[in-house]
């Protein structure tokens, strides 16, 4: 689905990552894990074409990313940004409706059909009751769900989420990740996301990429890749794996 080939990115002389190559398969949840400053967000922005890499190629559905028109790209890849800069107090519904923009002509407005799709997306995410609320007045978890509904309205096969659980409380963290997995199952979405918590990556992803500055530590199934050894390499921390009721948990050692 997404083929990343020899990708190198850097600002001026400093390289963030070099010769990165991997593939993301259709319908999988692919998680990138790494310490702060490891280039996770940069990598996502390269796939979103918000940044252009120094070298290498990204091929999406058999077509070079650079050959997509903006509109085409908006119909292929959608994103939930990590930080949404608060703008005017649009309603939650209006916010979701904006996901229909890649399907609109320059001078046209969303049609009845677009409105229907947006309402459907709100129902699917389970925030229909919020539709007339100003999106500036809802909780962080609800805002994340609003942006996920916008992604659904955008109706793309690939969804990118940059730390979808950042700033969320314990309950909302779980709620959002569960919703992402549920929607992936229902719509066969290809999900690419970054994360900080190895336990969540373990629980919610099909494959995990561990990156540290300039190098790939490991890539593979979460159960195989998230080992104490790799976690030491990645975070410089001693951790052990605990088995509780058939589930694996990663627990950092220490006092």
């Amino acid at each position: 689905m997404i083929k990343i080939d020899n990708l190198t990115f850097g600002y001026f002389d400093s390289e963030i990552f070099r010769n990165l190559s991997f593939e993301i398969n259709e319908g999988e949840i692919f998680t990138i894990l790494g310490p702060n400053g490891s280039g996770k967000t940069t990598l996502l922005k390269c796939v979103e074409r918000l940044l252009s890499p120094k070298g290498g190629n990204i091929v999406v559905s058999g077509k070079d990313l650079r050959d997509y028109s903006l509109k085409e790209l908006g119909r292929t890849i959608s994103s939930v940004p990590q930080i949404h800069k608060i703008s005017f107090p649009y309603t939650v519904f209006d916010m979701v409706l904006m996901g229909r923009n890649p399907y609109l002509d320059f001078f046209s407005l969303p049609s009845e059909k677009d409105v229907k799709i947006a309402l459907e997306a709100l129902k699917e995410v389970g925030i229909y009751h919020l539709k007339d609320m100003p999106y500036t007045d809802i909780s962080g978890g609800e805002l994340r769900l609003t942006l996920i509904a916008r992604v659904l309205a955008q109706n793309t096969s690939i969804v990118i989420l940059d730390e979808p659980t950042a700033f969320l409380d314990f309950k909302n963290e779980f709620l959002v990740l569960n919703k992402i997995r549920e929607l992936r199952d229902k719509k066969n979405l290809t999900v690419l996301m970054t994360m900080h918590d190895p336990n969540q990556a373990l629980r919610f992803s099909n494959r995990v990429l561990l990156i540290k500055k300039r190098e790939v530590v490991a890539l593979g199934k979460p159960g195989e890749v998230l080992t104490p050894d790799n976690l030491r390499k990645l975070y410089d921390i001693e951790a052990e794996l605990l088995q509780i009721a058939g589930n694996t948990f990663i627990y950092p050692k220490g006092n």
């Binding site: 908006g74 703008s87 649009y90 923009n101 609109l104 320059f106 046209s108």
Partner: peptide, 23 residues
């Protein structure tokens, strides 16, 4: 007036507008 919808999109900032297929 005909561009009024695009003002909604632009007010979300450059990155989000780009991700929504706009230049």
């Amino acid at each position: 007036y005909l561009l009024r919808w695009k003002l909604n999109i632009l007010s979300l900032g450059n990155e989000e507008a780009t991700l929504l297929g706009e230049n």
